[in-house]
Design a protein around this nucleic acid. Structure first.
Lengths: 144, 144
DNA sequence: TCTATTGCGTTGTACTATACAACTACCTCT
DNA sequence: AGAGGTAGTTGTATAGTACAACGCAATAGA
C-alpha cells in the first residue's frame, strides 16, 4: 500500500525532473537541431516523407507550429517540399541530403549520450526499463 | 549485443517522446500552475523557503528566469518574499497560504493522473520503474 | 577606513516554441 | 456552379528561457 504510493511518487518526481530538463539538455548537446526539429526531421526520414498535417496530428502540434518548424528546417536546407501533383494543396516533405547528414550526426550523438548514461546497466535492466517506458507512454497516450 | 542496442534505442525514443509532450500535457491538465512554476513552488514548500539563487542552482536555470518566475508567482499571490535581516541582498521565498492551497490541489491532481496511468501495474513493476528512473536521472546529472 | 571585488536580484533584449484565429488556395460533392 | 471541407501560411499573443548590463549590499584587502 504505502509502497505502491511511494513508487508512484518517485515516478512522478523523476519524470517531472526529466521533462523539465530535457529540452535544455538537448539544446546544449545538439545546437544544430532542437528536440522538436530533430523529431520532425527523423519522422520524415522514417516515413520516407509525409505532410505537415500528418506531423501535426502525430505529435499533437498545431499546424501553424509545424508550418513554422518546417519553414525553419527548409531555410536551413534540411527539408524540401514536393507539391503533390494529384492534389495541389498538399506538400510532401522530405529530408534533403544535407538534412539526412545532419540527422545522422545528431542521431549518432544522441545515441552515444544515451549509451554513455546507460553504460553500466546490464542487459536485463535495459530491457525492462525500455518496456516500462513504452508501457508508460502508451498509457499516457491512451488517457490523454 | 543487438539486444542492448535495441533497448537503448527504445529508451531514447520513449524518453524523447515523453519530453516533447510533457509540458503541454501538464499545461493542459493544470492551467493554474505550469510545470516550472509547480516545481519551484513545490521546492519552496519542501525546503521551508529558500533563495532565488538556490532555485536557479538546483534547477540549472538562469537567475533572471527564476526572478521572473517568482515575480509571476508573487503576482498570483502564491509566493511571498522575506528580506533576510542578516543580509539585505537576500530574499527568502515562501509559499503563501494561497500558494500552499494551489500547490496541494495541483499535487493531488498530478498524483491522481499518475496513479491512473499506472493503475494496472503491479507493485514490483512500479518499484523497478521508479528505481530505473532514479538511476537514469542520476546518471544524466552526473554526465551533464 | 576606504576601496575593490563578489554575491543577489532585476531589467532590457532577444529568441524559440507554442496556440488560436483569420486567411488563401485548392479540392470534392451535390 | 456553389457549398463546404482540407492544406498550409500568416498575424498575434503568450510562456519560458538565456545573456548582458545594471544597482545595491556585503565583505575582504590595503
Amino acid at each position: 500500500m504505502a509502497h505502491r504510493e511511494d513508487s508512484v511518487e518517485t515516478i512522478q518526481q523523476e519524470m517531472t525532473a526529466f521533462a523539465r530538463r530535457a529540452r535544455a539538455t538537448a539544446a546544449r548537446m545538439h545546437p544544430e537541431l532542437s528536440l522538436v526539429s530533430y523529431t520532425l526531421l527523423a519522422h520524415l526520414d522514417d516515413q520516407q516523407g509525409c505532410r505537415a498535417t500528418d506531423l501535426a496530428a502525430h505529435y499533437f502540434l498545431d499546424k501553424s507550429t509545424v508550418s513554422r518548424q518546417i519553414a525553419a528546417l527548409e531555410k536551413l536546407g534540411f527539408v524540401e517540399r514536393r507539391v503533390d501533383p494529384e492534389d495541389h494543396r498538399v506538400q510532401v516533405l522530405h529530408p534533403t541530403e544535407k538534412g539526412d547528414r545532419v540527422l545522422a550526426n545528431v542521431t549518432a550523438s544522441r545515441r552515444r549520450a544515451f549509451h554513455e548514461r546507460l553504460a553500466d546497466w546490464d542487459e536485463e535492466d535495459l530491457d525492462r526499463f525500455a518496456t516500462y517506458l513504452r508501457r508508460y507512454n502508451a498509457a499516457q497516450e491512451r488517457l490523454g
